[in-house]
Design a protein around this nucleic acid. Sequence first.
DNA 1: AGTCAAGATAGATGTATGTCGAAACAGGAG
DNA 2: CTCCTGTTTCGACATACATCTATCTTGACT
Lengths: 113, 113
Amino acid sequence: MTGGGCCAPISEAALDPAAAAEGAAVFKALADPIRLRLMSIIASAGGELCVCDITPQFEVSGPTISHHLRVLREAGLVDCERRGTWVYYWPMPDRLRWLSALLSTPEPSAASR
Amino acid sequence: MTGGGCCAPISEAALDPAAAAEGAAVFKALADPIRLRLMSIIASAGGELCVCDITPQFEVSGPTISHHLRVLREAGLVDCERRGTWVYYWPMPDRLRWLSALLSTPEPSAASR
DNA sequence: AGTCAAGATAGATGTATGTCGAAACAGGAG
DNA sequence: CTCCTGTTTCGACATACATCTATCTTGACT
């Protein structure tokens, strides 16, 4: 990955094709209901979370959860570590902040339109 | 549908399945390089933009741009109006702000740089 | 009316993606 | 070492999606 996270908000300047491709790849990781919920569960946990505590919250099979976690990890949104039998996941807040900044838009407080 | 735009950031509380589905649908609209660039071009234009000024900036065919604009419109990210021969698009900033707020994450410490 | 141009829609096609069951892998416990 | 449990990887399948060409719609102009 290029490292990313360096662009102005899209309401200030248009993205060049390369930046758009990089941003779209991360949004794609969040563009699935299960993955977005996974991300919110991990991000709101306040620390790390065992896969064994995550999987039962969903209706889909274990391999499917594992697949979605991998997508989130490859997008740089979470990271994980195996400790003994269990695997723990935690969020990567910088990546979330980058996306949030990309989409940020000034309030129409006193002005135009 | 919940009406949208009412949830706490994902780093504060996990999304319920319905909210995750709604959020994922909007992220999916931004999960394509061409659509994300389209969105940034429209959002940074400072007003409305004619399709005829947008299409030449891309390497794909007109119908493809039309298709992507429709996806953005159905996601509530832009809106459009026909005036005479031309069609004009403008951004819906509330929707962008909602996504940005969803992903916002507190800084780990007092920021500075 | 006829013609032209801008955009949108329809249909077709190749590729990507979500899901599963089965199998492999990694560690702990007997 | 052998078994058992938690997690990932593999292979297969059905559906969804991006893109194209061809066609339709809308409005302007002669």
